[in-house]
Amino acid sequence: MPADALGRGVRRLGAGTINAVVRIGYAARFFVAILTHSPQSILRVGLTTREIYFAGVLSLVIILLSGLFVGMVLALQGFDVLEKYGAGDSLGVFVALSLVRELGPVVAGLLFASRAGSAITAEIGLMKTTDQLAAMEMMAVDPLSRIVAPRFWGGVISMPLLAALFSVMGVFGAYIVGVRLIGADSGTFWGNMRAGVGFWPDITNGIIKSCVFGVAVCLIAVFEGYTAKPTAEGVATATTRTVVIGSLAILALDFVLTVFMFRGMGAK
């Protein structure tokens, strides 16, 4: 029956939509719960330090290398186009602005979501699958403040630092390619960069962006892990969802934040 199949399709679509809205509401409640459980986890700094190690320090290699290569490619591509319009002197500004405003926070955020976010989800999901979270509750240890909040804060603290390092490595890579390889002038490279990049609008906005992305990715990661189905397949699905939803959230938030930050300033 085509009509019956249509009805079933509509019903499934409706159920999916309602499910998604319910999950968003649950995630919001979960976020508030993490915040209220944070003071206890902040008092025990060692827990958060350990998570900064796993989320931040171990992501350093991929972040630094990616930043270097992104900066080098930016310099090559940018120089090619800018030179056509006789603006090869602006290479430093071009590279620094695109890194500090956009690529630093966004690409570092995407890498962070797939490198650290997925690990957080898998870890919490597996703890749930093996009933470790339930065991903690039995021992009157709150898993939210013992497991979830430290991972959340460890990621939130790591993310802006990683984004800043990404931007610095990118500028350094652009310097290597632009100045050492192509032969742009070192003085104009740094001079134009400093004249064109402002601390207040540009760099602070980039830092704000990376903080927002950090909160979004870490919330998604711990939430997906905590609500994962306690099966091997459930953990796998949750890990995939963290990467997919986290990346999409970063890109969508980036658009919204950019509209506010750079359009809102108007005539500057």
Binding site: L60, L165, G198, I203
Partner: peptide, 20 residues
């Protein structure tokens, strides 16, 4: 070390890349 070089990166951005 991670936190130190992270803060160093922000300072580098502020002083060398930006014009604080």
């Amino acid at each position: 070390i991670f936190v130190l070089i992270g803060i160093g990166a922000v300072v580098f951005l502020a002083l060398r890349v930006g014009n604080l």
